[in-house]
Structure formats: structure tokens, C-alpha cells
């Protein structure tokens, strides 16, 4: 189990950061955590998380913003919903995790590959109305930088095989009809979400 220590300075309870989290759409649920640990024992990916969801929530309440933002916990969430159905306090952990990821992206904490993947996927979906794997791949590796691109080139044989079997399209699909309207819908939804959270 990865068990990152919290920085050795004693926790000084400061609720500025906690308040920032509480203002997210599902952020107020973090208050309700009673630290029973049911989420941690239910989590399929707990072994590779820096902090279990329970600990992550406690970091938020203790005001440890940097540790929180740099942790991989929310990125490792596979949204399997096991914690959500088991939480005795009824906290929709998956939704909270989603909000936390969104916040991290918004504030530029994108060091984990999952973050880049989320961004690439979303840009594709938003810009085309459908997903083009080649596009996602290109965006992902460009975001991750030169080292990752080198790694990707190492996999070129596999890529060639996939191309041969028609498993990877080269030509991007057409944009959907009424893409403008879809984008308007999404933007409207986003503004509504922000409003509601306040």
C-alpha cells in the first residue's frame, strides 16, 4: 500500500481550503464523513492510491491543500461506485471525486496521466461531438511531453498491427450535425452547475 506521509509540520487547522471544497457541487458531503473507513476497504484501487478516500477527506478538512492536490487518489478512482453504495453516511463519493478532479484540472494540477487523458478526451468530445481515438492519442502525448512521446514511439509495431487490422482509424470522423447547439447545451450546463454550487 502506498501510504504517503503528510508533511511533518503539524496540521494547523485552517478551513479556507475546506470551504473552497465545500462550495463545489457535491463538496459539502465531505463534511459528513465520519472516518469509518468503509470506502477504503471497499475500494478496488486503494492499494495504489496515495491516500484512501477517507484520508483524502481528512486532508481537506485539515486544510492540507498541496498534499491533496498532489495526491493521485481521485485520479485512481475507477468510478466503480462500491464506496458510494456502501457509505453509511450516504456520501456519493464518486460524484465528490469527480468534482475534486474537475477542481484539480481547473487549478492546473495536471501531473498525472489521467488528467491529460481526461483533458484530451474532453477536447475531442467537445470539438467534434464524437470521439476520435487518434485525436485523443495525439492530444494525450502532446500534453504529456517529449518523454512520453518517445515511449509512444516505442510502441509503433503494435500501432502498425492495429492499423493493419482496422483497429485504429487514421481519418477523423465527421463532426456531428448541430455541433454548435451541443456546445451551447454543454456551456449552459456548466454555467448552471457553477451557479448551483454557489
Amino acid at each position: 500500500m502506498v501510504d504517503n506521509k503528510i508533511s511533518s509540520a503539524p496540521i494547523k487547522y485552517d478551513n479556507t481550503f475546506a470551504k473552497e471544497i465545500y462550495s463545489l457541487e457535491n463538496g459539502h458531503y465531505v463534511k459528513m464523513c465520519m472516518q469509518c473507513g468503509m470506502c477504503a476497504v471497499s475500494c478496488a484501487t486503494r492499494q495504489i492510491m496515495d491516500y484512501s478516500p477517507r484520508r483524502l477527506f481528512n486532508l481537506i478538512r485539515a486544510g492540507k491543500k498541496e498534499e491533496f492536490m498532489r495526491s493521485n487518489t481521485m485520479w485512481m478512482c475507477t468510478t466503480c461506485c462500491m464506496c458510494k453504495v456502501r457509505c453509511p453516511r450516504g456520501i456519493p463519493l464518486v460524484d465528490v471525486m469527480h468534482d475534486l478532479k474537475a477542481l484539480a484540472l481547473k487549478q492546473g494540477y495536471v501531473e498525472y496521466p489521467q488528467a491529460a487523458f481526461y483533458q484530451a478526451m474532453w477536447a475531442e468530445a467537445f470539438g467534434r461531438g464524437r470521439v476520435f481515438e487518434g485525436g485523443i492519442m495525439a492530444r494525450f502525448y502532446l500534453k504529456r511531453g517529449w518523454n512520453e512521446i518517445k515511449k509512444a514511439l516505442g510502441m509503433k509495431d503494435l500501432g502498425m498491427e492495429m492499423l493493419k487490422h482496422g483497429r485504429m482509424p487514421i481519418v477523423p470522423p465527421r463532426k456531428i450535425k448541430g455541433l454548435k447547439s451541443l456546445q451551447q447545451i454543454i456551456q449552459r450546463a456548466q454555467s448552471l452547475q457553477e451557479k448551483e454550487a454557489k
Binding site: 506521509k5 503528510i6 503539524p10 496540521i11 494547523k12 487547522y13 472516518q35 477517507r54 484520508r55 481528512n58 486532508l59 485539515a62
Partner: peptide, 9 residues
């Protein structure tokens, strides 16, 4: 719960 020292001032 965090296995660490804590302080409230």
C-alpha cells in the same frame, strides 16, 4: 486517523 501530530492554534 491521519497517524500524525496535529495542532490547533
Amino acid at each position: 486517523l491521519m497517524g500524525d501530530k496535529t495542532m490547533a492554534d
